[in-house]
């Protein structure tokens, strides 16, 4: 295997939307790099022409007919909301 993997922890944390302290960044990157180092073991395997497995027992065409079933009452839909108004979920102003 080539060089030891390096994680851009700031970029990954931003993609994952998790704020990390500097201490956490150091800790997580070294832990993740050691796990990735272990994972690199997969490169020993030649997987050319091997089909990927997405489902253990794959079947096709699993669907439902287009029929409306019951909905959640609005009160139930909103009962866990951290903040609500006018039967909607309040979020910080989104600037497009």
């Amino acid at each position: 295997m080539a060089e030891a993997p390096h994680i851009d922890i700031d970029k990954v944390a931003e993609l994952a939307r998790i704020a990390l302290t500097d201490e956490e960044k150091t800790k997580f990157s070294s832990q993740l790099e050691s796990i990735l180092g272990y994972i690199d073991k997969l490169n020993e395997l030649d997987t050319t022409n091997v089909e990927p497995t997405a489902h253990p027992h794959s079947v096709e065409n699993v669907w439902r007919e287009d029929r409306a079933t019951s909905e959640l009452p609005t009160s139930e839909a909103l009962k866990n909301a951290p903040k609500q108004r006018q039967n909607m979920f309040v979020v910080p102003k989104v600037v497009e």
């Binding site: 019951s70 909905e71 839909a77 979920f89």
Partner: peptide, 14 residues
């Protein structure tokens, strides 16, 4: 299975 539709009260088709 919840309905598709336009013009309903907020968060009723959920």
């Amino acid at each position: 299975g919840s309905r598709s539709g336009y013009g309903y009260e907020p968060n009723t088709l959920v």
